[in-house]
Design a protein around this nucleic acid. Sequence first.
DNA 1: AGGCTACCTGAATGAGCGTTCAGCACGGAC
DNA 2: GTCCGTGCTGAACGCTCATTCAGGTAGCCT
Lengths: 208, 208
Amino acid sequence: MAKGTLPSSGGLSAKAPEERRERILRATVDVVRTRGFAGARVSDIAEAAGTSQGLVLYHFHSLDGALDAALTLLEDEFYDDLARDLQEQAGAVQRLRHMADLGAGLGPAVGDWRLWLELWVRALHDPGARETRESLDRRWRTSLREVISEGVAAGDFAPADAEAAVIRLASLMDGLAIQLALDDPDMTTQRLADLWWDAAILELRMPH
Amino acid sequence: MAKGTLPSSGGLSAKAPEERRERILRATVDVVRTRGFAGARVSDIAEAAGTSQGLVLYHFHSLDGALDAALTLLEDEFYDDLARDLQEQAGAVQRLRHMADLGAGLGPAVGDWRLWLELWVRALHDPGARETRESLDRRWRTSLREVISEGVAAGDFAPADAEAAVIRLASLMDGLAIQLALDDPDMTTQRLADLWWDAAILELRMPH
DNA sequence: AGGCTACCTGAATGAGCGTTCAGCACGGAC
DNA sequence: GTCCGTGCTGAACGCTCATTCAGGTAGCCT
């Protein structure tokens, strides 16, 4: 209806369908964020996107299709954000510090940790989600590994076991983030960033 | 039917209903373990317990009631197992080492980590689950805190910041366990225990 | 014996929800 | 103009599943 009233406003009309699709994708992410994968309904998505249920299915074939597409979008954005953000930082120490902030949610990147929790549980039962979360994890760990290597080469870090440090620091971030995601009263983004940074100092034998 | 054929075999008949209830509870835990909270159906529970759907609802009023009861059972057993297991160990170092094994799933206690993952996500949306998981977390952290205090008093540990060490070691266990729960090919129970133990050495400045 | 209560069952009920579908609007091709 | 493909909608359709319920059995009290 609203579309019919604005039929010929330039070449935008050709892009309109794609915009709709995009809007539905965003809405799907939002719904998963608030309702969870298990609680996401086609009607929720349609309402959040301001469209009909039919259109959601028209674009994505099924509810699972929409959820999968949202997952893929999330993965791509996560990686793009991460890569871009890290490139802006100079030096291994700066980059590592930035990763602490990113993980804590202080920075612009890295979507809500609640989504990650949801992804983990979905991965327990859904092969596609499993792959996505493994890929996500691998990318994060790879970035961490590169930063640490860089720091070792530059003489900033001197870890006893670099690979173990990578896994532990990545895992620690996950574990701390759980409390953040669950609104544990003892955890804040700042505290998370500090706790993780101190662990990094310990693991990497940084002179501080 | 099977019950009708064995009517008067001693005083056990009086306990039979309670046994049935217990069986359903166990079945509920099993179903959650395999299907997840979101995928658990009354029919699954009934089938796993070898009873009718009606009886599940008779004893627990609703599906959610059964799930909640299973959660409570899990929490109680977790704590009992943990307390008993730790009491058997002598000295802070032994106890800490044992916690590494327990968390990794090498010991007898601590149910499947998949259940914990499920619990976390349920806690995102269900207040009861949130309370259970907070209680569980608190208990585990308290045990860890006590062991560390004991070790500090005995001169075994010398952490720079004992409270930060508690939170980090507890969180690290969670983070490592996620990979175990998700069958990450890079993670095994032994590796988890080793990685955690090395982190403890680092955090607590243990002489090794 | 008669009745009361706890335990248990299988079928029926009804709500919620994913998916399908008949059809409308519209813009471009011819 | 007519035709046709794409985008889109709202109303069914049909299935799954939690919950209800009428009834059946067995022990226990009086």
